[in-house]
Design a protein around this nucleic acid. Structure first.
Lengths: 231, 231
DNA sequence: GCACTTTTTCACCAGGTGATGAAAAGTGTA
DNA sequence: TACACTTTTCATCACCTGGTGAAAAAGTGC
């Protein structure tokens, strides 16, 4: 929409240097990420991406190939970081609490890294979460894509919950995970819906408010489901 | 993708009659609904809609105007039915239970109509829910669209919950609603993710399983949030 | 200076996009 | 029949789409 000037490369000594080579590749990914997050895969043209990145259309194909491959590159770039952060967080929680683990603690270890990253990671991460939320709710290929990138860490969560509540059925664990991920993704995508719905009482961007409620909410829900199915 | 033959009009006496007039209008809406649900607004062309409906492209514009207006018509068609079903369900619950209302009961009265309609309403409704779930997670215009069509009945839910738990803060009610709607929409959109994630243990299409868990899950979560914020 | 590779730009294509205006077909009425 | 009206089709427009191949520019090692 706006300037076509190439972005300054960060880390320079004040004088903006023209991005080049791998830097330019990242710039393209950044632009693509923001646009895909806002308008979805089909709602974005390679020309828009090129224009926002200040780059020729052909360069996108030079680096990434087809449009779909560009999308996958966007999706992959942060998925690995995310998975590792969550895995480390859960490992640490297990190691630190051992026998004294709680459902809420496990859930917090799983969700909190995302909230923290979204709060501290800048606009790129916010766009990314909105993108994942969209994919998560895409019937055509969302399930398959989510599985491809995020299944392992989810199994880690489920298995840890099973350790904390050994009498819980796996079926219930998976359903509760789905409820959790629905809530979490919607919160992370910050659509602004809650702002207008609550007439200014709540703000999508207030992830601290989410943190103060979501863990307890999901943990209590989980316990209720387990208790009910056991009865 | 397939046949271009106009659909038979239901209610005939065996001999398929060529759909015409308002029937054809509904046929177009049906095709558009399914395609939009699977591929999103930008992932569908008016030509695809026309082809699947067995109709000329120009007819779509004749009936609905621009592509976006067609989308809105799809969205609106079932929204009113949905809103009324939920409103009636909640009114009935309030009337029948009076002082003995519970949080879980109110939530069930709000959610159950959707589950029932999805189970009994046929493919059109399933597509519609998938579509709503997608819009719900669309940052660019999802929040605004959802608000336009669904705000009143949500306020009815929140106000009823406030009656059941007068000491709960509105802020908490709205956050809990967001958690609820995230879970509910993901469940209704039946993306198939839980099927592969659980390796066949759970099925997206098993809304009975959702019913058996979601109400209790959300109610317990709600109570936990209210209790925590009061403390 | 030179050859060589990588990166970036330019010009362009074949096909698809939403949309339109005018003609044609159908429908009801007298 | 003739007429007015609605519905459906046809041909077409101006523009945009993803993608490509060749040339130019920039970088690299000698």
């Amino acid at each position: 929409m706006t300037a076509a000037k190439p972005r300054a490369r960060s880390g320079g000594r004040g004088r903006p240097a023209k991005a080049t080579g791998l830097d330019l590749k990242e710039t393209i990914l950044d632009s693509a990420e923001g646009l895909f997050a806002r308008h979805g895969f089909h709602g974005v043209t390679t020309r828009q991406v090129a224009s926002e990145a200040g780059v020729d259309t052909a360069l996108i194909h030079y680096y990434f190939g087809a449009k779909r491959e560009l999308f996958d590159a966007v999706f992959l770039r942060r998925a690995e970081i995310l998975n590792q952060a969550r895995s480390v967080s859960m490992d640490a929680y297990v190691k630190d609490h051992g026998e004294r683990m709680t459902v809420e603690g496990v859930i917090a270890a799983f969700v909190d890294p995302l909230l923290r990253i979204s709060q501290d990671g800048g606009q790129g991460w916010k766009s990314y979460f909105a993108l994942v939320a969209q994919v998560n709710n895409t019937p055509a290929w969302g399930g398959e894509t989510m599985a491809r990138f995020f299944d392992p860490v989810v199994h880690q969560l489920v298995d840890t919950l099973k350790v904390v509540r050994p009498d819980a059925e796996y079926r219930d664990l998976y359903w509760c995970y789905q409820f959790l991920t629905g809530s979490m993704m919607l919160a992370l995508s910050e659509t602004g819906r809650i702002d207008s719905l609550s007439e200014g009482l709540c703000h999508s961007s207030d992830l601290e408010a989410v943190r103060a409620r979501l863990f307890a909410y999901c943990a209590a829900g989980f316990e209720a489901v387990v208790a009910k199915q056991k009865a």
